[in-house]
Every structure is written in structure tokens, then in C-alpha cells.
Design a protein around this nucleic acid. Structure first.
Lengths: 404, 404
DNA sequence: CTGAAAGCGCTTACAG
DNA sequence: CTGAAAGCGCTTACAG
């Protein structure tokens, strides 16, 4: 049975149900012939122009076209003129070289993978922007992978990036799950630079914060103001950054010779809902803390939502220190005191580090660099005091002393 | 002159300046032989495993390996067992198929390009996330391109995406510049879906807002509250969305039978600094407006900064309507009245539209669909009244009446 | 300086 | 069911 279509072979075999069946033996040959005819009749603009097409039109070899377009400098004026002609025709035909074929041949890709937990988070959006811009300067493209902090998603994405043969990877590792094992990366020569967080293998270059300092700065500020009951809202302790921020928190208490109230240490996934309910729980305690530190952009949002819901006056009733430096922090009333994280700088450095590794990989004289131990750098954070912190109200202060 | 290195050929010709010179004729042959030897001695884990490598190890043909890994169902138990063996070895060697080679052969890429103005903007970050998630469900990857609303950057990125032979493109077009001409897209069969904004060619599917309604809703709300001197901060009028939002503004005035004060219509690039200085200028006028509408996420930020700098009390002294629905809008005090834009839904629809086009392109029976006119949909916006708007103070109101 | 040829790593009709 | 062969669109040593 046949039905008419507007494309070759114009008559198409269909089965009784009316569905076309290209594999139908009887029409197979006809089908192929028609496809060929169709392709020949089709205007070349409909297909992607190839080197071969250009060379055919000019009656020269594809090699010559390739060389002309790659801009090899020629000496003989005759050759130059010909190259000019080739370029003109290429432009006219809208020739766009097939970078897939080129990559396959040259075994080089100007593409890197960027793996981040969440792009709606101001902090990572900033990182993504800067990585993208820095790499664009060197003519590298970015493939964007969002993990939502799920280790399985991340493992899948690592595999995809390997299959894509990206030149390198910049990633903020997801929290690790012993159940999910990553394919051994040693097997592939793809350079990886870790940003913000470090995975436990410790085999990659990493551009990190001084997280201990970050935790310390926020806590010390509140201690100096006279707070004693300081709650801290942390990410999961399986993430090294969260552990280190806690370490900084403890260190500040130790230096101030004030004992830590373990009940005020809260930890959970980096999601606003978590920070929201954790903060509500903190506020509903009989002895509520006089200050809170929320240790990430997401956690700040949840904490602010909870404070708003309970109608807490900041900083009169409770002080708040945020982490990061989203633009809207300054638009809040009171504006938010925060531990600013130099993510822009870090993103740029991560991109440059990766580019250096990629270059070393293509340069056989740089063996030492390739096999050198991973480079880990840590960036200082900076406390920015705004309006959301002040000394604790007298009442709370006394109550706190009673607790001790 | 020679120097020793740890990689083949172990002795490397170097010139007088100590730089290595691989093209040196004398050592060229030696060099190639050594490379070969090195490659043979190298453990296969250092190279990316190929089908050929697997087939060599098992003494079978690459075809068979390819078929086994692509999971063709086999009937004979003997064949099944062999396939199992092949898969096991592949896993053991950490085989990751080269998707470049596969794409070159099959002429199909599971990669789409996403072009957006700015990823630090909450609005576009949300769009990017949803596009990425929706496409990931269908196993498509996303190449991220940020234009900063620069038409030249956009044109370059379109070219790169063509060269990458992406399966499709979702883009928020940058404002158009007559000086920059895009390569004719008709020449390539890459489907494009436009999101949020529509380029002037009107040849692509587009998923848009009802921008007239959006402008209308915000303005009508303020008019109903009794405001007459309502300033509007718009993006560049070369962007259709900005023109249409303005149209909605005018329409609301017309319906309310109130004349428009043209001096209160401000337009400029979608950047916070612009909105900031525009707003300062508005506030410094002798007859300042009693209300402002900022028609994008970026513009809202700039306007808020200016209001804060002048210490304006919102809504007592001036009312403010924002656009979009960033989470932090609700954390402001007063929380922000806004025209919410259904960007999440739109991003998902754009992704599905693109997927449908891609499928149609691979299905020769769907000619009609391919050549059908572009599909344009517009999504309704929704006014969310919060705390930043209230009727104008009596004084201002009278002053306004005096003006008329 | 140019062209013929090989080959990057796959897939897939074709012949056995 | 399997293997030999062709070919996707490029680049690039090699021989003229």
C-alpha cells in the first residue's frame, strides 16, 4: 500500500494500519534511489555545506580548500588570490566548518564541562558567569551541568562529559555518597579543577575558600558584640566546607574562652526549606539564641523566611550573619551583615588553572607539570558589617548567662 | 643539541635557545618511531579505550562489539553470552563511547544551545534551570551561551552553535543592531525557539509573555490606587517586549481616561546601574512621581538601590511595582508588589517545542510540520499585591492634580 | 604550492 | 548472527 508524501520517494509504503514502513523490503531499493535523487535535486543551501562541496564547485581538492580556510599564509600571489576566491565562495555558501569532524580528527575539543549544584543560587550563578567569560576569552565553550547536589546525577554527568571528550571539567562536587561510585577518573586524561568544595579523593587541583576563617569571622564578630547563644546553620557535614566552617565557629568560641552550646549547631542539605524549618525550631525553643549565622546563600534565604514568619525584629531581637554577597543582601532592611566570599576571583582562577592543565597536556615537554601533585589554593573571606547585627538585648544576655 | 625528557623520544632535539623543535628534519623519523613505541608500551588505561581495542582483545570484529554495546537483542544464547562478555570487558576497561565519532557518523547530536542575556539574573537563571532539566529528561545536553545583550556576541555564539551542529537552539534574542547581521539561518536546518523575546525576523517559534497585559496590570493597579504620576522604567525600546510593556502602560491610562505624562517614561539597557541613575533623576525632579514601575528583575534592583540611597519610604512616600518574582522580593521590607511572569512554565514549554521540532526534522513523514508557520504563544502574567504599593499621600495627589 | 591518501572512532547496510 | 567495508567531514604528513 502506498501513500503520497511531499518528500522522496513521494510514494511511501504503508502497512494496513496506515503506518509507513521504511524497512519494507520491496520498496527499499526504490526508497534509496529516490533519496539520492532528492538529495541531488535539493538546493545545497538546505544541507550543511562541506569542504567537498566547495572543492567540487571550484574544481580543486578538499585539501586546498581546508588550507585556504585555515588561513595558511601563502607566498605566490596566484595562490593567495585563489585562497581569497575560496574564502569568498565559502562565505557565500554560508559554510560553517563541522567542528565535530574537526574534533574527531584533531582530538581536541574547545569545550569544557561545568558542574554546579544549582544555578538559581546567586553564588553559583556568579561562578558560572565568570567561568564562562574567562573561558570564552580563550575560545572555549561551556557545557552546563546542574547536579542539585545529587551524587548520582553528578556521576552521570561526569560520564557524559567523558563521552563528549571535553577538554576539561570545572566542578563543585556534590556531597559524596559511598553508595555511588564514580568511574575511575584516572582512566581518562581529562583535567578536573574543583571549585569551592573538594571531593574526598584529593587528587585534583582545587580553588577553595578558607572555610575555617569564614566560620571564624562570622562567629568572632557576634562574640565580640557580646552574643553567647549563637546558632549556626550549616550544610551537610559530609561536605568538607561545612565541617570547616563549623571548625571556625568552634575556634572562635575557644579563643573567646566561651563554651559552645552544641544544641545550637544545625546541619542539613543546602536547601532553603531546610534552613527555614531549622530556624523556626530554633526560634520556638524556650531559650532562643540571640544570634544566627546562616552559612550559605540558600540557607540565608530560608532563615530570613523563618524570621519574617515569626515577625522577629532584626537586629533588635536577634542578630543575623549571612554568607556570600548577593546584591539583594544590601537591599534588605536591615541590610545584611555577611561573610563575603570571593567567588568571582575564585571562578576566574579555576578557569585559568584548568586552561593551564589543558595546555600542559598538549605539550609533551611539560610532563612534570602533568604529574605534579594537585595545586590547592584557599581564598580569604571578608566580614562585611551592615545593619543586621548588634549587641544582644540586655534581657537575653542575662538569660544567656544563667544558662551557662 | 639534545635534552632528556621523560616522554618519548626521551632525547629531544633543542635549538640553541634551548627550545625543543619537533619539526627538526634530522630527528623527525626517530621521533615518530619513538612515539609509536611509547604508545605500544603505554597501558591502555592512559588512552581512551576504543571499540577497536576491545575487539582486538576479544579477537572479534568492532561491528560485533558495537552491536553488543548498543544492546541489540540477540536470540541465540551463545550470542547473548558473548555480548555479556563484551559488556563486562568494556566496563572493566572503563570504556566511554566517543560521542563525537558517533555524532559524526549518525549526524545526530543530543546537544542544544541555550542563549541568554545574563545568568546572574534570577529570571534567566530560572529559565536556564528549567530548560536544562526538561531537556535532560530527554537525554539532551545544554551548551550555555551568555550574550550580555550584545548582538555581536550573540551572532558569534550562533555561529559556534552552528559549527557544533547542535540539534536545536533556545534563545532570548539580544536587542538587535542593524550593523550586525546574522548569518542567514535559513541555510541551516537548525530549529530555533525564541523565549521571552522575539527577534524581528519573526521566522521562529516563540514562547512569549503577554507583555501588553504585563504593563497594563502594573499600571492599572497603581491607577486604581489613585496614582496619576506613575513613572515606568523600561528596557531599550528596540526590544519588542519593552515596547509592548509600554503599550500596556498607555492602555491602562487610556482606559482610566488619564493623560500620560511622557516625561515619566524612561528607557535604557537592562542594567541595574541604568535603572539606578534613571530613578535618582526621577526622584530629584521638582514634581517627583508618586509611583514607579520597574519592568524587569535587573531594573528593580537598580530602582531599589536608588530609593534606598535617597532614603525614600516605600510605600508611604512612593509606591513601587516590580516585574518578575525572585524569591528575595518577598524578603524585602516592605515586600514587593510585582507583576509575576510565568517563566518556569515558559521555559518548559520552549524546551518541549524545540524537542517537537527536532523530532519532526528526523521524521520524513512530518514535512508539513517542518514547513508550518512558526508557532507563537503568549503567557498571561499575574499581579501580586504585597506591601510596596498604597494610595498616594494626600499632598502628592493634590500636587499631581495641579499639574494636570 | 597542490592533490591523493590515510585516518580520527564510530555505525550500519550488505554479504555471507 | 558476524565480519568486512564504506563513510560521516575534516586535517595533515607525504609525494609530487
Amino acid at each position: 500500500m502506498l501513500c503520497a508524501v511531499e518528500r522522496p520517494p513521494f510514494l511511501l509504503p504503508i502497512d494496513k494500519a496506515g503506518r509507513s514502513d521504511y524497512t519494507c523490503k520491496r520498496y527499499h531499493f526504490l526508497w534509496r534511489v529516490c533519496i539520492k535523487l532528492w538529495e541531488m535535486s535539493t538546493s545545497p543551501a538546505d544541507q550543511n555545506t562541506t569542504l567537498k562541496e566547495i572543492s567540487r564547485r571550484l574544481g580543486i581538492s578538499p585539501s586546498t580548500v581546508s588550507r585556504a580556510l585555515s588561513g595558511q599564509d601563502l607566498k605566490r600571489p596566484q595562490a593567495r588570490q585563489r585562497a581569497e576566491e575560496i574564502r569568498r565562495l565559502a562565505a557565500e555558501l554560508g559554510y560553517a566548518p563541522n567542528s565535530i569532524a574537526r574534533s574527531l580528527k584533531t582530538n581536541q575539543r574547545r569545550l569544557i564541562g561545568l558542574i554546579i549544584p544549582d544555578i538559581m543560587n546567586d553564588y553559583y550563578a556568579t561562578a558560572a558567569t565568570l567561568v564562562q567569560e574567562t573561558l570564552a576569552e580563550e575560545d572555549y565553550r561551556v557545557m552546563l551541568c546542574v547536579t542539585n547536589d545529587d551524587p548520582r546525577t553528578e556521576a552521570m554527568q561526569m560520564r557524559v562529559l567523558r563521552e563528549e571528550r571535553v577538554a576539561g571539567i570545572i566542578r563543585v562536587p556534590a556531597p559524596q555518597d559511598p553508595a555511588v561510585k564514580m568511574a575511575p577518573l584516572r582512566a581518562s586524561p581529562i583535567p578536573v579543577v574543583e571549585l569551592v568544595r573538594r571531593s574526598s579523593s584529593h587528587q585534583f587541583d582545587a580553588v577553595l575558600l578558607d572555610d575555617v576563617q569564614a566560620g571564624f569571622q562570622g562567629t568572632a564578630h557576634l562574640l565580640e558584640l557580646g552574643h553567647r547563644e549563637i546558632a549556626i546553620v550549616l550544610g551537610p557535614l559530609s561536605v568538607e566546607t561545612a565541617r570547616q566552617r563549623l571548625e571556625g565557629y568552634r575556634l572562635a568560641f575557644e579563643r573567646a574562652q566561651v563554651p559552645v552550646n552544641e544544641a545550637l549547631i544545625c546541619s542539613g542539605p543546602y536547601r532553603r526549606e531546610v534552613a527555614y524549618s531549622v530556624t523556626l525550631a530554633l526560634l520556638d525553643r524556650p531559650h532562643r539564641p540571640t544570634a544566627i549565622i546562616a552559612t550559605s546563600n540558600e540557607l540565608v534565604i530560608g532563615t530570613l523566611q523563618a524570621l519574617a514568619e515569626r515577625g522577629m525584629r532584626v537586629p533588635e531581637e536577634i542578630s543575623l550573619v549571612g554568607f556570600g554577597n548577593a546584591d539583594w543582601f544590601t537591599l534588605l532592611r536591615p541590610s545584611l551583615t555577611t561573610v563575603a566570599l570571593p567567588i568571582r576571583q575564585m571562578a576566574v582562577v579555576a578557569a585559568h588553572t584548568l586552561l593551564a592543565r589543558i595546555r600542559a597536556l598538549h605539550d609533551p615537554t611539560a610532563v612534570e607539570q602533568i604529574e605534579a601533585a594537585p595545586v590547592v589554593s584557599r581564598y580569604a573571606t571578608q566580614l562585611i558589617v551592615r545593619q543586621s547585627t548588634q549587641p544582644p538585648a540586655h534581657g537575653s544576655s542575662i538569660r544567656t548567662d544563667e544558662c551557662l
